[in-house]
């Protein structure tokens, strides 16, 4: 998916978070967004994901030969972030089955097990997500982002709470995503930045 930010700015009430942000991300590219704490990396990622409306400027998306409106972006993106909360009363398999039903993706029990194994999560169906460790929850969020093979993957601090094995899973997923679409990573981690073809630094206005 081709993504373009054109002079995007964001204000919350009177507080200007950032202004005049412009960049383009080509299909197959891994693009990094960096910036100091509070500069607006996560806000920018939410705007890219169509979850927030920019106060100024605009986002443009192109998938194949067709333009995609920001309001209709949700089928085309995968999003994982530390602040994303999954349905903790359900177990991992139930969560995946639920997301698949809502997105209209047919997933068999075997495919669900395969996905869980892919990110190193247990396939037994006893424990609800609320009993998972923070690292296991982060792996589950990665599955939430990639199970439907979206053309645009948005990752906010993707290796937070993960051990070295979990970090390897993230970078495998990023490499795989590069073959079918674009990846945008909001991060300040040096290892994450190494995965990126280009980076853009957000200069927030405190």
């Amino acid at each position: 998916m081709h993504v373009a930010a054109e002079a995007v700015s964001k204000k919350f009430n009177r507080r200007q978070v950032f202004a005049d942000v412009s960049f383009e991300v080509a299909p197959g590219e891994v693009f990094g967004i960096t910036g100091r704490n509070g500069s607006g990396k996560s806000t920018l990622l939410r705007i890219i994901g169509g979850l927030l409306t920019p106060s100024g400027g605009r986002m443009r998306y192109r998938h194949g030969d067709a333009d995609v409106e920001a309001e209709k972006l949700y089928p085309h993106i995968g999003y994982a972030a530390p602040y994303l909360v999954l349905y903790e009363e359900f177990n991992a398999a139930e969560n995946l089955a639920l997301y698949a039903r809502i997105r209209g993706v047919g997933l068999t029990a075997g495919e669900i097990d395969g996905l869980l194994q892919r990110v190193g999560l247990p396939t037994d169906r006893r424990d609800p997500i609320r009993s998972f460790s923070s690292g296991m929850k982060q792996r589950m969020k990665l599955l939430f982002a990639i199970f439907h093979r979206p053309p645009l993957l948005l990752l906010d601090e993707p290796i937070s709470n993960l051990d070295s094995e979990g970090m390897a899973v993230v970078y495998d997923l990023v490499a795989e995503q590069r073959k079918r679409g674009s990846v945008i990573i909001a991060t300040n981690d040096a290892e994450d930045i190494q995965q990126c073809d280009r980076t853009f630094r957000v200069e927030g206005r405190a």
């Binding site: 994901g49 979850l51 949700y74 993106i77 999003y79 602040y83 994303l84 909360v85 999954l86 349905y87 903790e88 997301y99 809502i102 997105r103 939430f144």
Partner: peptide, 10 residues
């Protein structure tokens, strides 16, 4: 629960 964003993405 904080799941509004999850639903917005789905």
């Amino acid at each position: 629960r904080g799941t509004t964003m999850t639903l917005q993405l789905l």
